[in-house]
Design a protein around this nucleic acid. Structure first.
Lengths: 114, 114
DNA sequence: GTCGAGCTACTACACATGTAGTCTGCTTGA
DNA sequence: TCAAGCAGACTACATGTGTAGTAGCTCGAC
């Protein structure tokens, strides 16, 4: 399954918020897009099986993520690794651009040990 | 500027190979796509300013990358960081999926020191 | 019971992308 | 010199994606 950039943003909202209505997702997205646009994306996500309807609250349908955030993120990361040529180059880039500090590395090293 | 997945694959070939003809790029891509498809992609990349023609060798045009691999990769990585929520989660994923060893971390740590 | 606000379902459209065919012209070897 | 072949230019098309409007239904308040 492939999710577009906007679809991923909507998924991110659902992963954070759990069960949400279209309106709630729309508000979480800072309203850069129209309400109906968010609605359409949610519909497409449902067709793709990434999201499911749970119940109706008043007039509104509630949606929740139907796929795991971890799985999706892992796939994204794997694709990126292919493009940049592995973990080493990726980390090198992060260090270069100052996005990875010695403290970050230390924290991860502890995790690996466990 | 936004490059699609296939466009990125073509760029990767050019970053590796330097100045190449359409045929050479096509062969480097394992011929999963038709020759003319690669031709089209190269054309689009040229329109986007990601690639430029250098000279003619016999009948064939030669192409080379007009944008730096580093800059493109950095952008890709930044986008991914946004999606997964920063370096920490990214590294955590890498560790989880066994793509990041203690040795990798050690190597990077040395780099940071420098 | 009725009406209005809000929500869904359906439809639409432009642009990006992956894919590739065809036509025409240049190049080079015979 | 002339033809065969290779290459470029142009064209085409299905699908994905971002974007949003409209029509009609539903629920709650009065």
């Amino acid at each position: 399954m492939h999710l577009s950039k906007f679809e991923l943003q909507v998924m991110a909202v659902l992963w954070r918020g759990g069960e949400l209505s279209v309106r709630e997702v729309h508000e979480a997205l800072s309203k850069d897009s129209a309400y109906t646009t968010v609605q359409t994306i949610l519909q497409r996500l449902e067709q793709k099986g990434a999201v499911r309807r749970t119940r109706k609250v008043g007039n509104a349908l509630m949606f929740e993520a139907a796929i795991a955030r971890k799985a999706v993120h892992r796939q994204l990361i794997d694709e990126l690794l292919d493009l940049v040529g592995g973990s080493q180059p990726l980390l090198a880039h992060l260090v270069d651009s100052g996005k990875l500090s010695v403290e970050d590395l230390e924290a991860i090293r502890k995790k690996v040990r466990k």
